[in-house]
Design a protein around this nucleic acid. Structure first.
Lengths: 156, 156
DNA sequence: GCTTAAAACTTTAAGCTTGAACTATTTCTT
DNA sequence: AAGAAATAGTTCAAGCTTAAAGTTTTAAGC
């Protein structure tokens, strides 16, 4: 029995294969980074992400903005910020003129901790992607840049 | 003040950028798939992954093998299989000759459910990666294939 | 055969994640 | 100005995830 495939079917299968491969690589790298953060700094990827977002804006961000920036639910951010605050790495600051909102920003201890972690983090990524040349990086980056077009929200 | 960067430093930054971009795309696609699975089938990505692994082997897999195949902790698999079993989609079968181990396999209801979901899943991925041509898919796939070389365990 | 080590799972504690429900505050409508 | 709608956050329930500790069973060493 012979099965005939249209070009569309072949393309669909090919995209699926690509997706599974991307997923595998991403998870592998993520697992390695998570492990490193845990062992070296007793921290986590979500905490690192939050601190990275706050590092860019010295004046901090509203919970709202943080949630949008990281593309995670607002309830999620609440928990992570709670724990970072418990550790003295971030602080919540009242916003005058709007008693609903809160601004979150890194404490100086938080900034110190982040800079240390960020340097290490770049090193880990650099080592994990050791096989990637500048050309590869550019090429894949370019292709990925315009990738998920159908996901509703986009933008940065 | 002028800052001079070595090639290594540039490459490191470039790899970091690539990683962040990969992460963004992957998370975006994952979020879309998760949402679809939830709304259309009241299911989740981890459940889908487990069922996909079991679908390949009609006789099922030991919890052990399932855990290795999916690269997640064994305790994790226990929970997911528990819930799938509650829904009658998988069943645990005693292995004769070794009372420690259990074999898990899809029930016929599980096979039916999975085939339906798998078709939809491929369609979603195909739509999400609409901008990817066959050439792109091949190219990125090739590059990704040899990617994380320093992660300790590899293999399939 | 008996003790030790290894293997296969499960359980547990802690954190991450989401969607939905809920509270408080602000803004919009009329 | 009163009521309705929107906005900002938190809380909650359920599920995912890991590492570590615990259980039961099997295999190895002596």
């Amino acid at each position: 029995m012979t099965t005939t495939s249209t070009k569309q079917e072949v393309l669909s299968k090919e995209r699926l294969r690509l997706w599974l491969r991307m997923l595998r690589v991403t998870r592998q790298v993520e697992a390695a980074l998570r492990e490193k953060l845990r062992v070296e700094f007793d921290s986590t990827l979500p905490r690192f992400d939050v601190m990275a977002a706050l590092y860019r804006d010295r004046d901090g961000l509203k919970m709202n903005e943080l949630s949008k920036r990281l593309r995670v639910s607002n309830g999620n951010v609440t928990g992570i910020v709670d724990r970072l605050a418990d550790d003295g790495l971030v602080e919540r600051i009242a916003i005058e003129g709007d008693r609903r909102a809160t601004r979150v920003r890194l404490t100086s201890a938080g900034r110190d901790a982040f800079t240390t972690m960020a340097v290490a983090h770049e090193g880990w990524v650099n080592a994990l992607l050791d096989d990637v040349t500048v050309e590869d990086a550019h090429h894949i980056g370019e292709l990925l840049h315009r990738l998920p077009a159908k996901t509703g929200e986009q933008a940065q």
